[in-house]
Design a protein around this nucleic acid. Structure first.
Length: 546
RNA sequence: GGCCCCAUCGUCUAGGUAGGUCUAGGACACCGGGUUUUCAACCCGGCGACAGGGGUUCAAAUCCCCUUGGGGCUACCA
């Protein structure tokens, strides 16, 4: 069995693409077959130079390795369609010679006009096949006149086209309603998707294809092409899966990120636009225009501004989830369960379990919504479940990507922090709770809310001073000693531990959320703990309400 | 407009091919309670669905038809 994932290199790997790749990969692994990566870069206008590299990087992060394809090679290469042009021209020639394809010379404008006319008559557009196919001289004449030259496949109209879909069963199409003869070679000499796909699937000996529902209507045309090109040869078996839509409404689209930022900005009226624009590295005018929904800055600018304002953008691409602190194991598990299930009630599964259980006939027919809250729950579970060394390795990668101050910690410390954060939902949570240890003592940022709710209440500063004195007298500083001291103090003052621990926490971190307090003190050490308490007392004692 | 696909809790889904064992199961979310040095996690409990209408049948979530709703395609994009 040979399966494939065939993305077009237009940007990062997105959730939908990852899901398609995953199912094909699981299927190949399940059956001991081959999984091929093929890059469909036949649209010069849409290709992004770095996209192929990005897609491969994201696949590898997910653990989806290809047996044949770019960088790994294989007997059926090359694996970039732009390097396979000779195949397509050869087969187009063959169809032309057999009278199964013909040249056309309409300009895009002429085609648009024909379509508009069909629409005005409330009819579906069907390309009118000429009674006589243009000759080679006609082609030369057209070229001389500067007309575009394309090649169309003469779709057989005599019998219904039948597709046997593994998920949806037998589907029959009337060729006359399919839009007529379609283009196989564009005027730039490149093949269209439908043509290149057939030629390559044949030459790469693809036996099984799982792809999105959006390709279902392409399948009858591809089958007809296959029969004309490779009569008697079996086409791959197709499985057209459902689509995944976003829980923020509509399709999972990259526009969601800018839109989320804009919506957040609208709730912040007194914002310093000049400063924000500087953060994003764009002119103020560009930011203003963005706010009026007239333009959109590029994604790095959007992300920088969102990070600055602490606005969480919805993740769209696989790399976004990496940057938000998700585990690849989580993504694989979650994506696999969107539109598929193992047939029993298991949900949290390892990759090995997924491979063992995968059966494409269990793919769901209906579309599903990408639920980020459930994803979060899955990540919490995987963070707890995966081997600690593996989690640590992923954590390092996350920190490197984030250029986090936690990079300054050594491995044992990071492992300790990870352990203290049991129950955390993402690496971002872990980082947020422990970052205070790795910043300079005078760089602690005090959250207004924390100050008001903790430091300025219940004689917190008085307690803090007491804590400071006791801490100063402790040598050495052990977690156990700290705990006994804080508990003793709470008891002595007839208050809950929270009344003692929270002021200390805010003094050390500036926020009410951090690692467990005893570990926070021990991680910081005696000297830095005392210094932070002193800085806090100095800063807030004068300002405290009586 | 034409063609094609789909329809079970708010969400992901089990059950549908072989109609009765389904007063419809699980998970996430949500709500209530518990635990607690913060957040999270954790424990207990609760809410909650067969889109509507017709058939077929002793019996329908399950089979058939219609309606409605959602999605896709209708490109010299893939």
């Amino acid at each position: 069995m040979v399966t494939r994932f065939a993305p077009s290199p237009t940007g990062y790997l997105h959730v939908g693409g990852a899901r398609t790749a995953l199912f094909n990969w699981l299927w190949a692994r399940r059956s001991g077959g081959t999984f091929i990566l093929r890059i469909e870069d036949t649209d010069l206008k849409r290709n992004t130079p770095t996209a192929t590299r990005q897609v491969m990087q994201d696949l590898r992060w997910l653990g989806i390795e290809w047996d044949e394809g770019p960088e790994v090679g294989g007997p059926n290469g090359p694996y970039l369609q732009s390097e396979r042009l000779d195949y397509y021209t050869r087969y187009a020639r063959r169809l032309l010679d057999a009278g199964r394809a013909y040249y056309c010379f309409e300009t895009p404008e002429e085609l648009d006009a024909m379509r508009a006319q069909a629409e005005a008559q409330k009819k579906g557009f069907i390309y009118p096949r000429p009674p006589q196919f243009p000759s080679q001289q006609d082609v030369e004449k057209a070229r001389a006149q500067g007309k575009p030259v394309t090649i169309r496949f003469a779709l057989p109209l005599d019998k219904p086209l039948v597709v046997d879909d593994l998920i949806r069963g037998r589907i029959s199409f009337h060729p006359a309603e399919l839009g007529g003869d379609f283009i196989i070679i564009k005027s730039d000499g490149f093949p269209t998707y439908n043509f290149a796909c057939v030629v390559d699937d044949y030459h790469m000996r693809i036996t099984h294809v799982i792809r999105g529902q959006e390709h279902l209507m392409n399948t009858p045309g591809q089958k007809a092409l296959w029969e004309a090109l490779f009569p008697g040869e079996a086409t791959p078996q197709y499985a057209h899966m459902s689509v995944t839509v976003s829980d923020t409404g509509g399709k999972l689209s990259k526009r969601e990120r800018p839109q989320t930022l804009r919506a957040a900005l609208e709730t912040m009226p007194d914002i310093d636009l000049a400063k924000l624009a500087a953060v994003g590295g764009i002119p103020v005018e560009a930011l203003q225009s963005f706010l009026r929904a007239e333009s959109t800055p590029d994604i790095p600018a959007i992300e920088a501004m969102a990070a600055h304002l602490d606005v969480h953008l919805p993740e769209i691409n696989i790399v976004d989830f990496f940057r938000s602190g998700y585990l690849p194991e989580t993504m694989v598990n979650f994506l696999a369960l969107l539109g598929w299930n193992p047939g029993d009630q298991r949900e949290i599964m390892t990759v090995e379990e997924l491979i063992r259980s995968f059966d494409p006939t269990r793919l769901t027919k209906s579309n599903s919504l990408f639920d980020r809250k459930k994803l979060l729950a899955f990540n919490t579970e995987h963070l707890r479940m995966e081997p600690p060394e593996r989690v640590l390795a992923h954590f390092q990668a996350y920190l490197r990507e984030a250029e986090s101050p936690l990079l300054r910690a050594d491995d044992p410390t990071r492992a300790r922090i990870l352990k203290l954060c049991e129950g955390a939902r993402t690496f971002a949570d872990v980082e947020r709770k422990s970052i205070f240890v790795f910043i300079a003592d005078d760089q602690v940022v005090f959250e207004e809310k924390a100050v008001q709710k903790v430091l300025f209440k219940d004689r917190a500063l008085e307690i803090l001073r007491q804590v400071r004195e006791k801490l100063a007298g402790m040598d050495p500083l052990t977690e156990q000693g700290i705990e006994e001291m804080l508990r003793g103090l709470a008891e002595q003052r007839q208050v809950g531990l929270g009344k003692v621990a929270q002021p200390l926490r805010v003094a050390l971190c500036g926020t009410t959320i951090s690692l467990p307090i005893f570990d926070s003190v021990s991680l910081l050490g005696k000297e830095r703990t005392l210094r932070r308490i002193d800085l806090t007392l100095r800063k807030f004692e004068a300002a405290a309400p009586a």
